[in-house]
């Protein structure tokens, strides 16, 4: 089932993955990823020191493998941020070697 609502079928023959039912290119790509190795954006909050706001919301700027979500969050529990931070500012480069950066989604003054 693709998020857009198309019912899809996946078959594999000699290492070739065949997808039926998806009605758009994005859907085919999504189903292929879901079948081989699902990827997700990571979003969470970080502890803030030195501002009125308690938590800063953050995200990865690309998708990471689903099984890496929990290890990344566990690592981020040890991190703190300090003002000022702008929207989109990189907080952690190459998060745990995933190749994507952790960026701020809010501002901190």
């Amino acid at each position: 089932m693709c998020p857009k609502g198309c019912h899809t079928w996946v078959s594999e023959k000699n290492g070739r993955v065949d997808i039926q039912g998806a009605k758009c290119k994005k859907g085919i790509e999504y189903v292929r990823n879901e079948y081989i190795r699902p990827v997700r954006f990571l979003t969470t909050t970080l502890a803030v020191e030195g501002a009125d706001i308690q938590r800063l919301s953050v995200r990865t700027n690309g998708k990471i493998h689903r099984e890496l979500l929990i290890p990344c969050i566990e690592y981020l529990k040890t991190r703190k941020v300090f003002p000022p931070v702008r929207v989109g500012e990189v907080i952690v480069e190459n998060l745990l070697g995933t190749g994507v950066d952790l960026v701020s989604t809010n501002e901190l003054e």
Partner: peptide, 9 residues
């Protein structure tokens, strides 16, 4: 695909 705070900002 934005987060809520990004969309608001």
């Amino acid at each position: 695909e934005l987060t809520g705070p990004e969309y608001a900002n």
